[in-house]
Design a protein around this nucleic acid. Structure first.
Length: 564
RNA sequence: GGCCCAGUAGCUCAGUUGGAUAGAGCACUUGCCUCCGAAGCAAGGGGUCGCAGGUUCGAAUCCUGCCUGGGUCACCA
């Protein structure tokens, strides 16, 4: 609808500027005005053209209107307003036509082949298996999944990938943490003093009450570590007590934790096509190859026993360590190898959902970072730092147990990604989740089914696509509803392009915000009436609303219930 | 201190490729269930869009400076 009009306007503008000199006509906007008094659409072309045409905007506006005419039957009325806006009204029948367009397209309404099946990889969550998923991970999970759904909806061939790190220092510390708890449980080691644990700077005694303190300085303090140790004890008794290193413990811990992460993701209805293991990069000489290639380009040098990446050559602030002096690579090296592998696997674009950790100097435009800030927690009016290691966090499982998947997802996707998401723990307990916008939208959807059930009781069938005469839809609120529904394809396209699913969430709230009052005010416009033609048209409207709401909810990963 | 993000109603946030009178939810006040679903509807109060300049027909939106909050500046990831 809007595109058709825009095309007509472009043509009209083109005719106006003909012979006025060189260059393309300047860009102008066609917007849906806030106030209905300003038309179905408003165009600022006349004001934008003043400089070029050297005439007052209102004069140009009049000329534009004359040139545009009825724009091939689209425009019913045009007015000049304010400093030179051209306000345009489309005929009612145009808007009524939206109804059948939606019903005919059905589930496909709003879909697009803009992506042309190009392959896109969305990599997200990518939490290392060192503990349960926290709210921060949950936000990434929901955000990344919705972006993947949007891109798929817009015709891209999407691969969802979880890249995880189970090699290196982090996992070693994890294993040592479990081992220490295991030995503590067997009475062969002593836990570190509580006050030392609480203080990040404190030093630890070698032993307590004659027992060695085995828990590592930067160990993981969560209760789940002890549970894993108990599991090992239940299975192996004290058979692992004399292990010199923690690698066996680390393996068990990794497997246990990863299994739990997958259960959580499952509950969120977030799925992945691939779990890419950092360890696989250590094999087959991939890391060495990266270093060698970089060295060839003089981007690598040795200093202080470590191997450095000359990242200042890319204009970054400082150089980074690729391989530590103890021979262990930093995360950066496998990460570089990982991205190179991505290209080798043929992906063309990578919206790369990660924390705002900063790009690693990869110059390819194809790597996109969707940054999202941490979820901050407040309790008693104070900020609580989330830390897996120090076991100060709220898990996805905790919150989902309280509110369920749909509310969780809506809550997480409702705010744009780069903003902070502040989560008040105390408020969360008091909050009435039934007043959540997620329910509001789902309720609007369920009501379309309620009406269908009522119609069935009355022996009235739902209209079939292609067979709906929408002309009985004459009320302003009915036309406005159709206008709103007609915006869905544009909203989805923009959300996919900008990787901003929150636009969909707000749009759905708007649609529900028009539909719920419409249904409620049954005195003015009952869907089911004595007038068969009117009933049929309004049932068609209910179906159209249902199609759009269901499609939108699905893009956000929410269910579209038939009753609540 | 450098860089990044943010500052919009009491609270949480939309709106930012420049458009007309700045929006929503929550909270608060007042009404509404013999009526297609009250997880709802109607009405109401609530604002120096952090501050100050600048750009122009027009600025919450763009530019400059400043203030405030957060993040980040490791041989952690």
């Amino acid at each position: 609808m809007k595109e058709d009009l825009l095309e007509q306007l472009r043509a009209a503008v083109h005719r106006l500027v003909e012979g006025s000199g060189e260059g393309d006509p300047p860009a102008f906007a066609l917007d849906v005005p806030r106030s209905a008094d300003h038309g179905d659409f408003a165009c600022n072309a006349a004001m934008v053209l003043t400089k070029r045409l050297r005439r007052p905007p209102r004069e140009i506006a009049q000329q534009l209107i004359d040139t545009l005419g009825d724009a091939g039957g689209l425009v019913e009325r045009a007015e000049i307003a304010g400093p030179g806006f051209v306000n345009l009204w489309l005929s009612k029948s145009r808007w009524q036509g939206v109804l059948d367009e939606i019903l005919t397209a059905g589930e496909a309404y709003g879909r697009s082949d803009a992506g042309a099946r190009r392959s896109v990889q969305v990599e997200f969550v990518s939490a290392n298996p060192t503990g349960p998923l926290t709210l921060g991970h949950g936000r990434q999970a929901v955000l990344g999944d919705s972006i993947a759904r949007l891109l798929d909806h817009q015709g891209f061939a999407v691969t969802r990938e979880y890249y995880f790190n189970n090699g290196g220092r982090q996992m070693r510390v994890l294993g040592e943490s479990v081992q220490a708890r295991y030995l503590e449980q067997l009475g062969r080691a002593a836990p570190p003093p509580a006050e030392a644990l609480a203080d990040a700077e404190a030093s630890w005694p070698e032993e307590v009450d004659g027992l060695p303190v085995r828990f590592p300085r930067d160990g993981y303090q969560g209760g789940y570590i002890s549970e894993i140790a108990e599991g090992i004890r239940a299975e192996h008794g004290d058979g692992w007590a004399d292990d010199a290193d923690g690698s066996r413990f680390g393996k068990v811990a990794e497997e246990t934790i990863f299994a739990e992460i997958r259960v959580t993701l499952d509950a969120l209805q977030v799925t992945f096509d691939e779990y890419y293991n950092e360890k696989s990069l250590y094999e087959g000489g991939k890391l060495e190859a990266v270093v060698a290639d970089l060295r060839e380009r003089d981007l690598v040098y040795e200093a202080d026993g470590a191997t450095w990446l000359r990242s200042t050559a890319f204009g970054l602030d400082r150089d980074r360590v690729l391989i530590r002096s103890n021979g262990e690579p930093t995360y950066l090296l496998p990460d570089l190898a990982y991205h190179r592998e991505k290209f080798r696997r043929g992906f063309e674009q990578f919206p790369y959902v990660k924390h705002a950790a900063g790009a690693l100097g990869c110059p390819e435009d194809a790597i996109e970072l969707v940054m999202n800030q941490f979820v901050t927690l407040t309790s008693n009016g104070e900020q609580v730092k989330q830390s897996t290691r120090r076991a100060t966090y709220v898990t996805v499982d905790d919150l989902m147990a309280d509110v369920g998947r749909d509310v969780f997802r809506f809550f997480m996707v409702q705010r744009k990604a780069e903003g902070h998401l502040d989560f008040d723990l105390d408020l969360a307990k008091d909050v009435d989740w039934k007043k959540n916008p997620a329910y509001y939208v789902q309720y609007a959807h369920a009501r379309t089914h309620g009406i269908e059930r009522k119609a069935a009781e009355n022996g009235v069938a739902m209209p079939a696509p292609g067979g709906v005469d929408a002309s009985p839809l004459q009320l302003p609120e009915e036309i406005e509803l159709l206008q709103k529904l007609s915006q869905f394809p544009g909203v989805v396209a923009r959300a996919a392009e900008t990787r901003e699913p929150h636009h969909v969430a707000y749009y759905l709230r708007d649609v529900a915000g028009q539909w719920n009052p419409y249904i409620q005010d049954g005195t003015r416009h009952r869907v089911l009436s004595d007038d068969p033609a009117l009933s049929n048209a309004r049932l068609g409207l209910a179906l159209a609303v249902r199609i759009v709401l269901a499609a939108g909810l699905d893009l956000l990963g929410l269910s579209a219930p038939e009753r609540m």
